[in-house]
Design a protein around this nucleic acid. Structure first.
Lengths: 249, 249
DNA sequence: CCGGATCTTTGACATGGATCAAGGATACGC
DNA sequence: GCGTATCCTTGATCCATGTCAAAGATCCGG
């Protein structure tokens, strides 16, 4: 188990929680929030640490407060595929299911806001807002999974890399309040191997295609992780998606 | 539009509905069921017919009563990926979303039990059982999508074909109440091209791998569609999944 | 500042699956 | 029963990506 390097923090007030308005608690009224507040506890995980192993018993559910975690499946011979990304406000665990269906790994330092399974499920039955919000979030995840299926099944290696960079860029751009034409810069939050696991490629192919996009002026690199996009539309052209900006989210 | 070849049927009583206990209405009490009954209407679609196009306005949601439909996405240059399969009792449409995100196509003759968006969403807000059941179903779909991502990203063509046949076989076996050792027979409900779109392959590769599995005695064919599995465990060995029967669902 | 980990790049080569092309099987309308 | 459309199979060839191998970059602890 992973208990050794995990720490339990003191609880913070929900009202200054950074994910208060996007997480599973987004729709809760003050009485529901009070109930959640009384049953929550925080846990931290270091980058690289496994949060749960596939098949483990999972007696809590949680919201990601800070950091990035990934869901992955591994075949017997070691082939691995990432099947989901947990960003701040995303929910992990499934009401009604005891065993984890995937490995969950912290990609960066991660802080979780955890709830014990029993009380949480009770609350899902008793009050409507948590279940409603969780349904919305699950439907969004399903859409994301299906976009990803198109990527895995039909895109070329170059398109896959461009798509991944565009997704990460878009997330950063959303935060940095940015338009699509002038250049901007951000950090890739993952190794080449993690990118490969995400995209259904080998790490060598990832490295080659990143180099190719750099050579062609679609991206610029400083070091291994810092990416600059001189022209976002040029990048989008390389993703294979409709140019009207539909598919990527 | 597809209105020309679609027919509107007379309503049947929910109490003898074949999907009554698995669909989105599974948990409804008699008063909720009455409300649903008053707002539902049936629509039929022929095999091959498109039910909705990606981007279309969708003013209803529906349960599949009978038949098989597929969700697919198509890239500008024609590459296509199936991203979901709708079987009897599965739900299509998303509360709160107006435009369809995927093409929905009838693979066989399909009967839908439809609800206009407005009243259905009203009901989701007013009563808990529909939303609760829809959450469960959506979580199941998400799991299925993630299994599929592993298949698309990491399995070989042979493993993909074996996995698909095993999934279909398992579904038929569940219906036919069957054990895993003796042989049994069923029909592939799709063309080679549809299999290819499902698996992220070309139809030629599908054909070759089906032939190879036949040559190796893993399956037997009569005609193009009728498959016999002499030894289900042998088939499972070819899927690349854990032998304990975990991943396939 | 050094030595070892870890991550990344690049090259040479192998190969699985795509592509291009032809023809066979089956169903269906006339 | 014949012609045509659709679906499927098979062969030849090509190429994108995987595999294997080596070496370069970066980081970090001592």
């Amino acid at each position: 188990m992973t208990a050794a390097s995990q720490t339990i923090q003191l609880n913070k007030d929900c009202s200054d929680c950074p994910i208060r308005h996007r997480a599973v608690c987004a729709r809760c009224e003050s009485d529901e929030l009070e109930l959640l507040e009384s049953m929550k506890y925080y846990r931290d995980f270091e980058a690289g640490q496994t949060i749960v192993w596939s098949g483990d018993e999972l007696n809590f559910v949680a919201s990601v407060v800070d950091g990035i975690a990934s869901l992955s499946q591994t075949m017997e011979d070691g082939r691995r595929q990432m099947v989901g990304l947990l960003l701040p406000s995303d929910f992990m665990g499934r009401p009604g299911r005891i065993h984890a269906p995937y490995d969950v790994t912290a990609s960066t330092k991660v802080t979780l806001c955890c709830f014990r399974r029993g009380p949480f499920e009770q609350m899902m039955n008793d009050t409507p807002h948590v279940a409603q919000r969780l349904l919305e979030m699950t439907l969004d995840e399903l859409d994301a999974a299906r976009e990803w299926m198109l990527l895995l099944g039909r895109k070329t290696a170059r398109e896959k890399i461009a798509s991944l960079i565009a997704i990460i860029a878009r997330r950063n751009a959303a935060i940095a309040q940015h338009d699509h034409t002038s250049s901007f810069t951000f950090e890739l939050p993952m190794t080449r191997e993690a990118m490969a696991d995400y995209l259904g490629l080998t790490l060598e192919t990832v490295s080659r295609q990143v180099s190719a996009l750099k050579r062609d002026g679609v991206i610029a690199l400083r070091g291994k992780r810092e990416v600059t996009i001189p022209d976002f539309n040029r990048l989008l052209d390389e993703t294979g998606d409709d140019s009207d900006g539909g598919p990527l989210v």
